[in-house]
Design a protein around this nucleic acid. Structure first.
Lengths: 118, 118
DNA sequence: GCCACCCGCTAATGTTTGTTGGCATGTGCA
DNA sequence: TGCACATGCCAACAAACATTAGCGGGTGGC
């Protein structure tokens, strides 16, 4: 996944998702070794409920992928792994992303009469 | 500014700051032309109060810089411009950043006894 | 004096996010 | 049957964020 593949709004979502210490740690751990939820929670020292929330957000923006597998003893294990991504974040990339941002609510798309401040 | 120059916590702050449509637009506009607050607010079609909040956050993490200048007719103008930055965001970069993240509150730094869930 | 332009601040709002605790499901094994 | 392990979901709270409205200050020019 490159930065050019994303719309401005998608980029904002991805950045918001990465802007969290827990989720950075999840990416860090998973980038070395795929893992399943409960084990990952133990490794990170956080509760499963909390981890699941973060994993769901990471998955929602495509930064990780999930695979449901059955272990040898028949237990259902949900394995996560990182999706390869490389976002080269520069001012120019932001300018390009801004082009594909959804217009603000109430934006008429015409710059002639801007709202007055004060 | 490269991604290696930042601690994990700083990176999180930078990402959180970029994860906003208004601030992406500010970066986009400023990357083409430095500008002062009131004019920038008109260009973007948002209120000055709102813009100032976002500019302050961008400045706080070093993505933009401010310069106070006097116009020809003696008015104080606060000009902003983007700081050059290039953050190459990859799983490996996240792994490196995670190493320099501040430990969670209550983390004893010992993995022997993890909190039990459920 | 009054108006237009520039700058800043704060209090109050509504919305989103992070986190916890509890409960329900399923498996295999002693 | 009861335990340990795996999964999921939901209600509730606190904290952080985005936004508005209104106040203050300054300059120069008619």
């Amino acid at each position: 996944m490159g930065i050019g593949d994303l719309t401005g709004d998608d980029l904002v979502k991805v950045l918001a998702t990465l802007a969290n210490p827990h989720r950075i740690r999840v990416i860090a751990v998973l980038s070395k070794q795929r893992n399943y939820v409960s084990q990952l929670a133990r490794d990170l020292g956080i509760s499963r409920a909390l981890l699941q929330v973060h994993l769901r957000k990471l998955e929602a923006v495509g930064l990780v992928t999930a695979t449901l597998e059955l272990s040898e003893d028949g237990k259902a294990m949900k394995y996560y792994e990182v999706a390869p991504f490389a976002l080269n974040l520069t001012p120019e990339a932001c300018a390009a992303a801004a082009e594909t941002l959804a217009p603000r609510d109430g934006d008429a798309g015409d710059a002639r009469k801007e709202p007055r401040d004060g």
